[in-house]
Structures are given as C-alpha cells and as structure tokens.
C-alpha cells in the first residue's frame, strides 16, 4: 500500500517537473532529490563564502581608492550570495550550523578554484573575468532550476554577478595596456587561472556521475562539457581583444563547428585539489574555522543583548 503511494507521488512529482511547475519547500519530493539539492546548494554556498578569501587578501592592497571600493563591494556581494544559498538549504530542512560545520570538518566540498593562491593584483582581474565569468555560465541556467527557492536565489545572484565579471575584465584590460611589466603581470595571471577556470565546470561528462538524474529533475540544464565549451568560445576572443594569449598550444578555431578546440585538461590536478591537496586547501578551511571560533563571542553577545532588550520591553 505504502509503495503504491510513493510511486504515485513520484509520478506526480516528475509530471510537475516535466511541465515546468516549480517545486516549493513544503511540496512532496523524493528523498534523493532533497539530498541532491542540499549537497549542491550547500557546496555552492560554501564556494561563495570561501571565495571571499582569495580576494579579501587584496582589499588592503588595492592600487587606488576606486579599485578598493569596487573590490569591497564585490566581496560583500559574495557574502550575500552565500547567505541566500544557506537560506535555500534551510528550506530543505538542512540545519544551518551543521551545514557550515561540514565545511569546517572537510566533509563538504566547495569549488576547487578557491584553493589557488592570489599572488599579484592582476589575479583580482583574472578572478573577476574568468572565475566569475565561469560561475555566471554555470548559474544562468540555474535560474530555471526546478526547485523554487534555489531558482529565485540564482536570479538575485546572477543580477549581481554581472558587475563582478566586468570589473575583473577592466582590471585585466588596463594592465594589458600598461607598462611591459604590467602586461606581463596580466598574462601571468591568465596563465595561472586559465586551466583551473576550465576545471570549474567539473569532470568531463563521461566521468560525471550525477548529470543524468539532475538533468531529468531539471536541477541541471546543460552538461559540464557543454558549459565548458561555451565558456571557451566566449572567452578566447575577449583575451585576444586585450592582447593576451590563452595558455593552450592546442587551441584552434574549427570553422566547421564554429567552436574552439582546446587541449587536454589535467584531471589529475583537478582530483588532487578536490581531495584536499591543492596549494591552499588547508589555509582556506582553517581561515573559515577560525572565523567561526573567533567570532563566536559576537553571536553570544548579540543573543545576550537581544534578551536584555526583550526584558526591558516587557518590564
């Protein structure tokens, strides 16, 4: 009896998704759909928050006040993105504190791109242009994701992201037109961030185990390889326009397909970074853990102050 009910519910659920009806928090959903979303949205939230670290590293050393104000606004936006997304996981019944602790114990993953160091100011340009650019490419289709709260969070995020990419490209374009040293700095940043940016789209379709189910549930609309190709196609001409060279000797435009062909991605490097062996994995997670521990008194103080204010009101 119970089994019949479940399969009936599952059919109704899939029918809704097929008809592009959004799933909302209190609607019935298969447990696996819920868990897939919790995993994906919390990883996304962690990526926004950890992503503040490599850029936060340069706020005090921005070359002028305009750049500093812009970078601050961008990093603040990323904090907001993390909050929208943590809220979305809470609508699925995930516990906020446990979700964050999973990051701190290494149980939860975040985008591997943030495990690379930011060595020069040009890296702020490369990150905005390439990393936010790749993130936008991933996030735009998520605005139509079947889960309502995630889709709505993505609409807000995408609106805010577009300035992130432009400010990064502007930094790169300026450096590329500057002194030979400045241009070399921009090229070096592109060299270091190009391949990790391509890896941001995740393993190639042949090795991606979640794709088929996620596509059926309309959590995902395009495969990793499709999005990666789209990113290469739009980014290569942008690099050329500002006189920088994409560090890939196999890169060439295929007149017939209208797409760029590009070299082999070093998947060994990708999996090493995912497993925790990238240049900054430990530093990033330590920084987050310390932020929670050292900031705990603020939480406690706010609770105490709220209690005092409530008592004064009722007295």
């Amino acid at each position: 009896m119970r089994d019949i009910n479940i399969s009936e519910l599952e059919q109704k659920f899939q029918a809704k998704i097929d008809n592009d009806v959004k799933i909302e928090p209190n609607d019935w959903m298969p447990e696996e759909y819920r868990q897939t979303l919790i995993r994906q949205i919390s990883q996304h939230a962690h990526s926004e928050i950890v992503g503040m670290l490599p850029e936060g590293n340069w706020i005090t050393r921005a070359p002028n006040l305009r750049r500093k104000a812009v970078l601050l606004a961008k990093v603040q936006d990323e904090a907001g993105h993390g909050l929208y997304l943590y809220s979305a996981t809470e609508t699925l019944g995930a516990d906020r504190e446990e979700t964050i602790d999973d990051l701190h114990t290494g149980k939860a993953k975040y985008s591997s791109i943030f495990n690379y160091p930011t060595l020069t100011w040009a890296d702020m340009g490369a990150i905005g242009w390439l990393v936010d650019g790749a993130a936008i490419m991933n996030q735009v289709p998520l605005c139509r994701c079947s889960y309502g709260p995630y889709a709505r969070a993505m609409v807000r995020v995408c609106k805010e992201e577009s300035f992130h990419q432009r400010q990064g490209f502007e930094i790169m374009a300026h450096l590329a037109q500057g002194t030979p040293e400045q241009k070399a700095m921009a090229q070096d940043a592109l060299n270091r961030f190009w391949w990790p940016s391509l890896m941001m789209f995740g393993p190639s379709d042949a090795d991606s185990k979640h794709t088929a189910q996620s596509v059926q549930w309309k959590i995902k609309r395009h495969t990793n390889d499709e999005l990666r190709q789209q990113f290469v196609d739009v980014t290569v001409p942008q690099a050329a326009l500002i006189g920088l060279t994409v560090p890939d000797k196999d890169l060439k435009f295929n007149e017939e397909t209208g797409h760029y062909e590009f070299g082999e991605i070093d998947w060994t490097e990708f999996w090493e970074v995912v497993k925790g062996n990238g240049p900054c994995n430990k530093e990033r997670v330590d920084a987050r853990r310390k932020a929670k521990e050292n900031g705990m008194w603020v939480r406690e103080a706010a609770n105490a102050f709220a209690a005092k204010r409530a008592a004064r009101k009722s007295a």
């Binding site: 907001g80 909050l83 929208y84 809220s87 809470e90 906020r96 709505r152 969070a153 807000r156 939480r299 706010a302 609770n303 102050f305 709220a306 204010r309 409530a310």
Partner: peptide, 18 residues
C-alpha cells in the same frame, strides 16, 4: 528571502545589508 538574526531589530539591519 530569509536570514538569521538575534532579534527583530538586528533582522532589519541585516535585511538592509543583505
């Protein structure tokens, strides 16, 4: 959307920022 805050006063301040 939603957010976390110790009390209503702080919720409004956080909502302003978020």
């Amino acid at each position: 959307g939603s957010l976390r805050a110790a009390d209503a006063h702080m919720a409004i301040e956080n909502a302003r920022d978020v």
